[in-house]
């Protein structure tokens, strides 16, 4: 029997959506791009209140933010206040964590670059007196050689 062959149809891929995808990717990279800076003097530390996205802290860790741009410049996990009230703020947060049976192991410090060391040392002393002895300073300066 002679079976009639089907005529071969050329396969066409619809590329109309391609420019849209490319535009989306383009906008993403345009927005996220930061030009690399090799100058050591331009050390940029995270703006203390905008670094949650980069957080390395776990559920057992304390996150301390010290900012130079706002009046209430200290944030301990969720509690906000001033550096002068660091003792109360840390105690408040620790009590809340204790109620949930969470015992703090480490404190992650996110500090603006122009904060005076007297403020940093004050908080370190508070942590030391509360027996939180492991501290991690989070910064943007490339330290891995």
């Amino acid at each position: 029997m002679n079976i009639p062959r089907k005529p071969k149809k050329p396969i066409k891929i619809n590329t109309t959506a391609l420019p849209d995808i490319i535009f989306m990717l383009l906008f993403f990279f345009m927005v996220t791009t930061t030009m690399q800076n090799q100058n050591m003097s331009d050390l940029e530390l995270p703006a203390a209140f905008n670094v949650q996205a980069k957080s390395k802290a776990g559920p057992n860790d304390l996150e301390i933010f010290i900012s130079s741009s706002v009046q209430n410049n200290l944030k301990v996990n969720t509690h906000i206040g001033k550096v002068e009230d660091s003792k109360q703020l840390i105690a408040l947060e620790l009590n809340q964590m204790k109620k949930n049976s969470i015992f703090v192991h480490r404190a992650f410090m996110y500090i603006d670059e122009n904060i005076k060391m007297s403020s940093v040392n004050k908080i370190k002393e508070e942590l030391q007196s509360l027996n939180i002895l492991k501290i991690s300073y989070i910064h943007n300066y490339e330290s891995e050689s």
Binding site: M30, T33, K56, K124, N131, S136, Y137, I138, H139
Partner: peptide, 23 residues
């Protein structure tokens, strides 16, 4: 797109660890 893909660097956070002595 290729230009921005090549020049993009994501802000990386580094960590400096410190152990305090007990008070």
């Amino acid at each position: 797109l290729i230009f921005f893909m090549v020049v993009t660097t994501f802000n990386k956070a580094y960590e400096l660890q410190q152990s305090l002595p007990p008070k």
